[in-house]
Design a protein around this nucleic acid. Structure first.
Lengths: 120, 120, 120, 120
DNA sequence: GTGGTCTAGACCACT
DNA sequence: GTGGTCTAGACCACC
């Protein structure tokens, strides 16, 4: 795990954790590593992880038990919404990029069908 | 125009020019700015632009007339192939990202349909 | 201005600014002091003010122009909602405290009427 | 029970006991815990409780029987006055806070009516 | 000059 | 041990 300079480290870590939650690599209710642990693992300052966890908490993706640690929300709905919003973001970026190349949505869907056939 | 550090600047410029060609912002046969001109415009070292033009020539997307400048290819087919390869790259990245979120290709196509409906 | 230890300093500052906005001491669109300025004025670390401004921004009470400063939102509605929520919070605390003393809401209103008369 | 640093601990305890008396949680004539007992329960120095009881005696809210302990006054009037003064204090703080938000007494009463309706 | 990010290290409250 | 807050000081991008 290393960090490109384009995006703030803390946002990259947030995104990484979100993907892990949505993909099921981290399940609902699971305890996240302690701030110090994760800081060492990712070779960043504990304050950076602290910021990550705090942001995830204000987005209600995680919650905290004082003195116990930080945990992924128990709410399936929240996780489902998170998945939706991450997907929506990717779709918008993708479609915008393709439209820049003069593809219409119809074109894009056609190409995806072809791509799906190709992989089979 | 500014450059993120993730990708070498020259690759970012190459990509920018490719998109402009495919999208029709720069048309076939059109003259590109001189290396010095473009270097100043993008606040970049002229050598970087040299490298860009050389690479575009190697890919047969541009050609150079000695003493006259660098021009976009006249070949529609080359441009069409370029468009294809750029699109293919975007698709692969997009699908990979969505699969990381546990979406299948079928899911993705369905969501794109919905997205297309939503924009109409 | 000094800070009691009960509440984190940054929350106290946030609240102070919110009250100033709601009361009209700071008007919509107005520029807030720079992080460094306010830090010196309140004898606090600039990072603490940074945290304050960031939080106010995520609550959409302020917005930031990079290199220009932090400004109060232009949205009257947001400010009105802020006023509502601050008032609501105070009311709930007050009523809870009074109910602890065995006053009903009816009692409370009666006492407030009397208090209003008394001040006149 | 824990104590914020804003107010001297002994004043916080005094207030806690006053509320318990006014709310009826402790009834008139009832014996209060011994200083040592209460000190242990609240994890506080016994001298602090001594001071609390002494102050409550000065205010004639409690009285002491040598060798028997400290008791809540038998006077209904004293308790009623205590209730009044606690309520008055809360009202003043509340109204001051609301006026800081540009609410008039009329506004406040209207909002309390609405709040009462909402809870019903 | 402005805000934004990050590190280093400290102290606190809670379990 | 956990997270929460705060200070000090650094470097960056933008204006």
């Amino acid at each position: 795990m290393d960090f490109t300079n384009e995006l703030p480290i803390y946002l990259q870590i947030i995104n990484m954790i979100k993907v892990d939650i949505v993909s099921g690599k981290i399940v609902k209710g699971e305890k996240l590593p302690s701030t110090r642990e994760l800081a060492i693992e990712l070779k960043v300052n504990p304050n950076t992880i602290q910021r990550v966890y705090k942001e995830l908490e204000t987005e209600e993706i995680c919650f905290t038990k004082r003195g116990m640690g930080t945990y992924v929300t128990e709410e399936d709905l929240t996780i489902a919404q998170l998945k939706e919003s991450l997907a929506q973001e990717k779709i918008e970026q993708f479609v915008a990029g393709m439209e820049q190349l003069n593809y219409t949505i119809g074109d894009i869907i056609a190409k995806l069908h072809a791509y799906g056939e190709g992989k089979r």
